[in-house]
Design a binder for these strands. Structure first.
Lengths: 223, 223
DNA sequence: ACTAATTTTTAGACATATCTAAAAATTAGT
DNA sequence: ACTAATTTTTAGATATGTCTAAAAATTAGT
């Protein structure tokens, strides 16, 4: 079974996948409707369709969950989405807060070769600009990066891998301070009273609050 | 007026644009139907719709032609299509005969920034892998490259810019002989009796027929 | 446990893009 | 110029994905 899915169907799979990560068990009709900014009745219709295609398990009034095949499909779409995000940020000068909308479109382009060649071209990145892991060609997903800038100590050095909070306001803040994917940061000082940090980034010294340091995924350098 | 067009509408504009290049005057319903592999009745419906949007001029039974706005839109889509083709061949190891189908999808992704950044990333290419000119951001189109390999003389050197004939069999032939976009070719010998050529390409010496040399666009090197 | 609130589903409608079959207009042949 | 062939349009149907409004089922409150 390898029927082509419409963009809409793919978006439903993706939404259900991400919702089942947090809410573990089955996903409710309303939750999907809210996520996709549509009405519950539309969700019911689509859910029946995906159920017939054996991509989700669905019993009336009981919510839905992805089948193995459904999960595979969802992971493939997420892989494409995140690879494109890397491409946009790394090569096309997109800011973190601009990539999502475009990646939403690019992720639906159908070509296995395209995806895998893009992966190779980008040198097999493991995480997207938001710090989310990129599934490999077989659908295996790395675990989340869980080192936050906040956990570093004075004089430690790291590279920015992603963000935890993807809100436009946070991403704008980062762009404003030129804190980018791949930026190297040195912790110059860590204040006891408010956990703010003095950091060196490129040739600038700036102070950032705990609110920021707790939302930046980093990779420690040296040891 | 800047309404969003569906992918289908965009495909109609593109088809009408390319048909009006050859058949100059107005384009017939049947011609569009054939180009898009659909039925004449479907074309009539869509043509009415595009006419209401002022993208084409249409009078019943008289065929259609693009308005200025329609032409602008078509050129933008073609620009995107050709830029993506360059990207696929240059960076993602696609062969000439593989790019079209994928570019057909990529061309519909909506983001002006994406298009222009891609253009910059590719270093503002003037022609796609098939030798067709790429419109610039303002919609200006260069004229066709009209230097064919066949017109070169003994000992002249050139770079492959594109192909005239885009048939899968021809493109496969080129791939088979590793004649690629950007390949440097030296004309070693030109036979009088059949106009075939002995050429040097990379470190190989091969013989190619006039059928081939008349379908390869090139740029002369040195002088 | 029974009513009230909420969630989910159904029924019926609409918009897009397509099709077939038949009607209307144009064009071509003699 | 008149019929025949072709092209184009209309009319009515279908499939997808959406909606509103009402009905049905579930969950929560006391």
């Amino acid at each position: 079974m390898n029927l082509e899915l419409s963009q809409t169907e793919e978006n439903y799979l993706k939404a259900i996948f991400s919702l089942s990560l947090s809410r573990s068990k089955s996903v409710s009709t309303n939750a999907i409707a809210e996520k996709l900014d549509t009405k519950a009745s539309s969700v019911t219709d689509m859910v029946k369709k995906l159920s017939e295609k054996k991509l989700i398990d669905y019993k009336k009034y009981q919510g839905v969950s992805l089948t193995e095949e459904g999960k595979k499909r969802a992971v493939k779409i997420i892989r494409k989405h995140r690879l494109w995000e890397v491409f946009l940020v790394k090569h096309l000068d997109f800011n973190w807060d601009e990539v999502h909308e475009v990646a939403e479109q690019l992720e639906h382009v159908k070509s296995i070769k395209l995806t895998n060649e893009l992966d190779r071209f980008l040198e097999f990145p493991t995480h997207d600009p938001h710090g989310d892991p990129i599934p490999d060609a077989d659908g295996n997903i790395d675990h989340h990066i869980d080192v936050m800038l906040a956990s570093l100590h004075k004089n430690e050095t790291c590279v920015v891998l992603g963000v935890k909070d993807s809100s436009p306001s946070f991403l704008k803040y980062l762009d404003g301070h030129e804190i980018k994917l791949g930026s190297e940061i040195i912790v110059l000082e860590k204040e006891e009273f408010d956990n703010s940090m003095q950091i060196q980034i490129a040739d600038r010294k700036i102070s950032i609050s705990q609110q920021i340091t707790k939302n930046l995924f980093v990779k420690k350098l040296g040891k």
